[in-house]
Design a protein around this nucleic acid. Structure first.
Lengths: 205, 205
DNA sequence: GTACTTAGATACTATTTGGTATCTGTATTG
DNA sequence: CAATACAGATACCAAATAGTATCTAAGTAC
């Protein structure tokens, strides 16, 4: 175990780099053609490596899929949490939420990948458990943001925020998938509109 | 061509029966495990036939998938159209819409299958075209129903009905998929809630 | 610099896939 | 009832798949 003590781990560093490349390759391919169509061979090749590299870094295809799922969800949750932490006016918060999923920062690709996860989860018990757990965290964060939003706006939510969170997540996912071929601005507009409707803040009362 | 004139087509009848069995088998399997996982062999076997029967009735796996898509969408559209045709009060119409997708008549399975279609469509140009076309019809029907609804209610929609239709479709699909493991009554409640929020008719003003 | 470790390449396997070619039994036709 | 047509079964195929076993070149330790 001479790992943690040593100074320059050029070896380990490279390994991590390879792993990252494989992850990004897999993300791309899963997103593009779905779980089944993204073969291990292809993932490796697309990253500029061979299958050997893949199995040297991941236990299985399922494993890389789950790892991807976890990291995406984590990133998403972090974005929400940081939103929560910031001090901002009601209008600012509203705007931020409105642009959250539809903004240029959060890639649309993620949504499709998430959909792929969701579908796999609805079919595979292993995935289902992992997905449910991660989703719960995400949902909780979203609920927090919504509560903060309504508090700042001085309004009462039109429905339990738990439900609003669920509906919001579903709608965004659905819209992104539905309009996969539509131009980005159409998607954005629809998503914004949907969020305002669901949150009940479309017209300034 | 001694087909259309003759009396009792017991042969042709049987053929159609076989085809229907294959279709239902495919629907089941596509829904359960997705497009890729439902092999032609499996579809045939599950219907009680051999692969020979399959290829005697369908040109390819893609073909049966598309045929399934078409018939499901058609059924859905017909349901909407018949809703449109009926004379009913605003409340009745509202209730009917509220229960439309969430009702016991429309099987939840369909939604998951539709999702599978949608995902495939987002990845395959052939599917994309077919799906877009069918979806357009469905959307148009839904728009008609919504217009009728608002007319009867004597209200103005909170957003262009076109957008409302898109959002509604996406939300329902998203919720059904998201809550695939949740009990049916939870799904129903969420879907109802979402519809009311999106349509802007949650509280009786 | 020599011995050891290991990231990653190559080669291979067993299995599954969609699709085809061919065959067979039975319903239809004359 | 004999000839034919055809629904569907059987037997195949080439390609692709996830995963494994083995090897090699380069990094690390002494």
């Amino acid at each position: 175990m001479p790992r943690a003590i040593r100074r320059r781990l050029s070896r380990e560093e490279k390994r991590q780099e390879t792993k990252q490349k494989l992850l990004r390759s897999a993300e791309q391919l899963f997103n593009h053609g779905g779980y089944e169509k993204a073969s291990v061979d292809l993932i490796a090749e697309n990253a500029g490596f061979s299958k050997g590299a893949f199995y040297s870094n991941f236990e299985s295809k399922e494993a890389i899929f789950l790892e991807l799922l976890e990291s995406s969800k984590r990133r998403n949750i972090e974005a929400l949490e940081s939103l929560l932490a910031q001090e901002m006016s009601a209008e600012e918060l509203l705007l931020a939420i409105r642009n959250y999923q539809a903004g240029p920062d959060s890639d649309f690709d993620y949504a499709q990948l998430a959909m792929e996860f969701q579908l796999q989860a609805s079919r595979d018990a292993t995935f289902a458990k992992a997905y449910a757990k991660l989703n719960r965290n995400y949902r909780d964060s979203l609920i927090g943001v919504l509560e903060k939003l309504y508090a700042k706006l001085g309004r009462t939510p039109p429905a339990p925020v738990k439900d609003l969170a669920d509906i919001l997540m579903a709608t965004i996912a659905g819209l992104l998938l539905q309009a996969a071929e539509a131009p980005a601005n159409v998607r954005k507009r629809l998503i914004s509109e949907a969020m305002l409707l669901i949150l009940g803040i479309s017209e300034r009362k």
